[in-house]
Design a protein around this nucleic acid. Structure first.
Lengths: 210, 210
DNA sequence: ACCAATCTGGTAGTTACTATCACTGAGGTA
DNA sequence: TACCTCAGTGATAGTAACTACCAGATTGGT
């Protein structure tokens, strides 16, 4: 299916996709999201509007494409089930943020640009929050708790949604600071403000000993 | 401006608005949201498509129109500033839910129908979550904390967003139960699952036997 | 060299939403 | 009663985000 049938095919596809998204974010930032049409993006990227829709199902996905969900879910599944829910989820979120923002500088700037668009554009903000909702489901699945018990699942959903909401607050603050403050620390601060000081370890980058 | 210039004018306007929304929710439930066009809704309500757009700026608003935000904000502003943030916000949310679901039976059923649509339809779910985001801003304002201090505001946003996320989890569960379980108790349970048992008082009609 | 699969482009259509102009009828005043 | 104002409504035409449906081009494997 989506395997690397041939390295060249997959590489070219990934490259056009990256190019389209880069031009899209640039144009949206310059002219505004609503004032930029999909046709504009296609022309800037040197492809047809059809090709844009093949790579990104909706105009919003031009900004929102993101698969950090798997990253978070993996870390949660690997965490100890002995800790309280909020601590497990919170640590996974902080770890994931450490990985994502420590990557490269250009990637961080691109993430910031996308985040600014998500926050300021209603349509993007709405769909982004809905994506977080999907991530919540993935987190609950990864927790591995007894899914048969409705009460357990209910508690897991409540905890996961609350953690993600706190993280979103940290993301907004991070974007407002233009990424100057370290994101993992902000997430820890948001979690502490919501759940109390004791719930997260205030370590420098979360838990480096992973 | 929006005063009752004449009682008759305002009454007729409110009536058509109510009729349009009722037909919209009915049609969306019967045929599905995407399969129902705004023109369909207009015809069912006996008005022109233009009139629908005059009353509801977007198709989503046909389901999402809601002004419970003011209710919550008022209760928060009236609450004691001595309690922890999460407790203040949580109590306000539970109180508001008690008021809303205790009203009348028809109103409760209508709320349930709208909630089911919001949960199952991606476009509605996304915009509803974004509305919650706006409600979060209102809650932070109502808290009356020192808005000049960025750290205080940050903590308030984190707490408010986490509380609203937990409430949303309770709303989903409530809709899944077709409103059989009392909503205020569910909200209290969700808050307890996220923030710990001690954070919410089980209140007047919270969870008597749990 | 051939076949299969994938990537891409074009055309036409649906639908949400907007801008603009014209009509109707209610409310207040003389 | 007669008149004026204006909110509410409607029709038309237009933009833009998508969605089939079909056709050509390029790559990979045999």
């Amino acid at each position: 299916m989506t395997e690397q049938h041939s390295t060249l095919r997959a590489h070219r596809r990934a490259e056009t996709q990256r190019a389209i998204q880069a031009h899209a974010v640039r144009l949206f930032t310059e002219r505004g999201y609503d004032a930029t049409t999909v046709t504009d993006v296609a022309e800037a990227a040197g492809v047809s509007p059809m090709t844009v829709y093949r790579h990104f199902p909706t105009k919003e996905d031009l900004v929102l494409v993101d698969q950090r969900g798997r990253l978070v879910a993996e870390r949660i599944a690997a965490s100890s089930a002995a800790q309280p829910l909020v601590r497990r989820i919170g640590s996974a979120l902080i770890d994931a943020a450490t990985t994502l923002t420590g990557d490269d500088l250009a990637g961080k700037q691109f993430l910031l640009a996308r985040l600014r668009l998500m926050i300021s554009t209603p349509a993007l903000r709405a769909k982004h929050l809905d994506n977080n909702y999907a991530l919540q489901q993935a987190i609950v699945d990864a927790l591995g708790d007894d899914a048969a018990d409705p009460d357990t699942a209910f508690g897991a959903h409540a905890a996961a949604s609350a953690c993600l909401a706190a993280m979103h607050t940290a993301l907004v603050r991070w974007a407002e600071d233009d990424g100057r403050t370290e994101l993992p620390g902000l997430i820890a601060k948001a979690l502490a403000a919501a759940f109390g000081e004791g719930i997260v370890d205030t370590g420098p980058n979360g838990a480096p000993g992973s």
